[in-house]
């Protein structure tokens, strides 16, 4: 069965002039990707990479200079309000709520803002308050709730919209470990309900736990668009830890840096290295053999998504430097 594409992001470009220096910044440069119905996509990138601008262009809050976003067949740039029937979002976490209203009043207000009556949404509001463990605090002002509870409430507000797509910008930002875990579990539950989700985040456990696929953006460009599992495999099979019996010579270190830029010499003679191709292992062996470096042990590393992300960003930087040179 053909999987239905729900979101198409086509060649988005957005640039700004910096207020003080008047310098032109290309925040997003030809970003394209698609998201299938029911898929959870992680949108990653360092600070200033263009993630939030991309998310806001998907919701139609920022108009792109070029390109378009199509959601469920509706072009956001042509019919934004119709498109918004399919989207809800948590853009600024707990700041998306009215702090002088109670948890329940917030849910009721945002339901009304989408044209739904309190009566119509009563059952769903009750269910969400219970599921998100907010029932006991339903009549508390949001300003009196903990940050974690506020974040959960913001998620509940987005869910109440009953849209096909949910966009989450940094849903676990600023949460302690326990609440972060709790929010992750809730996101898992939401994903199991068949929603299509785009999560922009720095929180790698969120990506590893929830996302099936990830789009990594750096300097406004997509540098990777792969399934999380495939990215993990790619880096897992090419990352090694070598325990060396003697130190590398200066010449060896230079050659190593030139041929295998992602390497790190750790205490105890341990060398972690990422190889781009499987055959590179022979070149590495040759390089070590030249100075009779003793190899005591070779292990393939277990890698987490944070390292995958860092490797990709590093590769992109190296590539940029090579292009300049």
């Amino acid at each position: 069965m053909k999987e239905e594409i729900l979101i198409e992001v086509k060649g988005l470009k957005k640039g700004y002039k910096k207020r003080k220096t008047k310098e032109w910044v290309q925040a997003v440069n030809n970003v394209s990707f698609t998201v299938k119905r029911g898929e959870i996509l992680g949108l990653l990138g360092p600070n200033g990479a263009g993630k939030t601008t991309t998310i806001k262009m998907i919701c139609g809050l920022i108009v792109p200079d070029e390109g378009e976003v199509v959601i469920n067949g509706i072009t956001m740039q042509k019919n934004r309000l119709k498109g918004l029937e399919h989207i809800s979002a948590v853009l600024e976490g707990n700041r998306n709520l009215y702090w002088r209203l109670t948890a329940r009043e917030n849910l009721e207000y945002f339901a009304g803002n989408r044209g739904k009556s309190r009566k119509e949404k009563m059952g769903e509001i009750e269910k969400l308050l219970s599921e998100f463990k907010l029932k006991q605090k339903e009549n508390e002002l949001v300003s009196n709730l903990s940050r974690g509870m506020q974040q959960k409430l913001a998620l509940a507000v987005a869910l109440l919209a009953d849209s096909d797509v949910i966009l989450l910008d940094e849903p676990t930002l600023g949460l302690d470990i326990e609440t972060g875990y709790e929010v992750r579990q809730l996101l898992k539950k939401i994903s199991e309900a068949g929603k299509t989700i785009i999560i922009s985040t720095h929180d790698m456990p969120v990506v590893q736990d929830l996302c099936e696929r990830t789009v990594i953006i750096n300097n406004g460009k997509v540098i990777a668009d792969e399934k999380v599992e495939e990215l993990m495999n790619l880096f897992e099979t090419s990352a090694y830890v070598l325990t060396l019996g003697n130190e590398l010579t200066e010449q060896q270190q230079k050659e190593l840096d030139a041929k295998f830029p992602i390497n790190e010499l750790l205490d105890g003679g341990k060398l972690t290295i990422t190889l781009e191709q499987d055959n590179d292992i022979y070149d590495l062996m040759d390089l070590l053999k030249k100075e009779n470096t003793i190899i005591e042990k070779i292990d393939r590393t277990t890698i987490d998504f944070e390292e995958v992300f860092m490797n990709l960003i590093q590769e992109e930087k190296n590539h940029a430097i090579h292009s300049i040179n």
Partner: peptide
């Protein structure tokens, strides 16, 4: 200032109606 403006703009009814 509150951070709710963009959330209001997410309504399919349109901000001017809000």
């Amino acid at each position: 200032t509150r951070g709710t403006l963009e959330q209001l703009y997410m309504s399919p009814l349109g901000m001017w109606k809000i």
